[in-house]
Amino acid sequence: MEEKYIYRKYLRKPAKFFLFIEFMFIISYATVSLGLASRVKTTNSPTLWSIILGVGIGIIVLLSLEFLFIYLVMYRKFKKINVTLTEEGIVYNNIKGETRIPYENIQALKFPSIKYTGGWVKIIHINGNIRLTVVLENIGDMLTALKESLDKRNMSTVYNEKKMYSFFKTAKYSDNSWERIYENIKFFIVYIVLNLGVIAIFSRYFTTTPIYIFLVIGSILGPFIPYLISEIILGRKLAKGSFKNCFSAPERDKPFENKLYKWLFGIYMIIYCMLLIILK
């Protein structure tokens, strides 16, 4: 049975990713501007607000042009990249065309990966090689299917089982991690906006401008701390629950994930509120 694998959404449809970055910039810029303007005696000056608005629009235009350049140079090609595993071999499509690789023509699989953070599988065949990274959706499942097809043909010598298993865990973790990002991105945005809203409301109470700017930056970057801690914990949990002999990894435990998020983000919120009180 044929199975097709494509690149992740943020590479195939980067517009939402770009809009998210611009949205976060607008919110952050507006918060900083309102806070700083409230400290200036000429708050009602049309000139002040014209400068703030002009600078903001200028930065947004520059960001948009940069994103457009990145899309035309790099992201556009990801729409056409896909990998299909058939009964006979691998079908690899990219912007240059289609490459068919019979399993019998595969000479080696290389795994120059970085544990739990990324990496790729390099498939070396008679006519060249292709490289598949962890940004391929469900690459963990693809690797398992590829291994099974090679083993059926007694071709287990073309790969190092230990390195393949290590990359398999990285791939499965990457698949799960991106699923969590897609599921929780809206919550993350709301969380950051609420943080910035609190800072904007109480901006007059912070003693100095550097402290205010520090808190704004902390409000944006702070939520990433509990998120990263949760990902480390979930990555270790996946590694411990995986089995090398059958190349299997545990399915996501969503109740555990939700509980972990509640605890970590709850602790973060307590620390965040304490900082607001201390630095006020």
Rank of each mutant, 00 (worst) to 15 (best):
T47E: 13
S203E: 01
K244S: 12
A249R: 09
L279F: 13
E2T: 15
Y75E: 11
I81N: 04
I21A: 14
E251Q: 14
G58E: 00
D253K: 01
S28F: 07
L146A: 07
N245C: 06
L260R: 00
S177P: 07
K163F: 00
I232E: 08
N129M: 12
S45T: 04
S230A: 15
I51M: 05
Y205L: 07
Y272E: 04
K262Y: 10
V216L: 07
E148D: 15
E148V: 13
N184H: 11
A108G: 04
K4W: 01
Y268S: 06
G58D: 01
I220N: 14
P255Y: 01
V91H: 05
I220P: 11
A15N: 05
I59R: 06
L19F: 14
K259M: 07
V91C: 10
R204Q: 05
A171V: 03
T133I: 08
N82E: 15
G97P: 05
Y75H: 15
T42R: 09
L36M: 10
I124G: 10
Y75S: 05
K80W: 12
S177Y: 15
S50Y: 11
G54V: 04
L85H: 02
K96M: 05
Y159S: 01
G118K: 08
L196R: 04
R8I: 14
N154Q: 12
K115V: 06
Y191A: 05
F214T: 02
I181C: 05
K115P: 01
I70D: 09
P14I: 09
I59H: 09
L132T: 00
N184S: 13
F168Y: 13
I90V: 12
I130R: 04
L215Y: 00
E148M: 15
T31S: 11
K262H: 05
M24G: 07
K169E: 02
N154M: 08
K172V: 11
I267K: 06
E137A: 09
Y227L: 15
V190K: 06
N184Y: 08
I130G: 02
M24R: 06
S177I: 13
K96A: 11
L238D: 02
K152W: 11
I52V: 09
F167Y: 03
R76G: 08
L221I: 15
G235L: 04
L238M: 12
E137I: 10
K122Y: 09
I57H: 08
K240Q: 14
K163M: 05
L150D: 12
L234T: 00
V190E: 11
E251S: 12
M24C: 11
Y75D: 09
K237A: 03
N94D: 15
K122S: 15
A145W: 11
T208D: 08
E3G: 04
